[in-house]
Amino acid sequence: MSDPRSGAHPSPGRRTCAGAHPRHGLDEVIHAPVRFSIVATLAAADKAEFAFVRDTVEVSDSVLSRQVTTLEKAGYVAVTKGYVGKRPRTWLALTEDGRAAFAAHCRALRAIAGGDDSRDDS
């Protein structure tokens, strides 16, 4: 939803309308399956090496790179490059905004699915 008068577009991942349904709490940046998997992997650690995330999420280098770029532009992932010995390495980490967005997104998913995680469905 953009304002045709200003040319402004809402920020990626931010809600543009208020509503009572929990789907309004979903983050469009995180909601894509590969990005959700990346963010979930990074939520479990302070930082993770690019290759570890790639292998965990089961995607190619190029797919991971494109999705990380989207998450980085949204302010959800920080990318750090360096070396281990003479080998170049890339580390990925969730930012504070990324952790908050992931937590809110998970709350919205739980609310859509029926609420309490501790409920026994058996």
Rank of each mutant, 00 (worst) to 15 (best):
M1Q: 10
S2M: 03
D3N: 14
D3F: 02
S11C: 00
S11Q: 08
P12F: 00
A18H: 11
H24P: 05
G25D: 09
D27K: 01
I30A: 07
I30C: 04
H31Q: 14
V34F: 04
V34N: 07
R35Y: 03
F36M: 11
S37L: 11
I38N: 07
I38A: 06
A40N: 12
A40P: 05
T41M: 12
A44W: 00
A44T: 12
E49V: 00
A51P: 05
A51E: 13
F52T: 14
F52H: 06
V53C: 05
R54G: 08
T56H: 01
T56R: 01
V57Q: 06
E58Y: 04
D61P: 08
L64D: 09
S65G: 08
R66Q: 15
T69K: 15
T69H: 14
T70Y: 12
K73I: 01
K73M: 07
Y76C: 02
A78P: 04
K81D: 13
K81I: 14
Y83K: 00
G85H: 09
G85A: 04
P88Y: 04
L92H: 15
L92C: 10
L92K: 15
L94N: 08
D97Y: 08
G98I: 00
R99Q: 14
F102Y: 04
F102D: 11
A103M: 10
R110Q: 14
G115M: 10
S118G: 11
D120C: 09
D120H: 14
D121C: 12
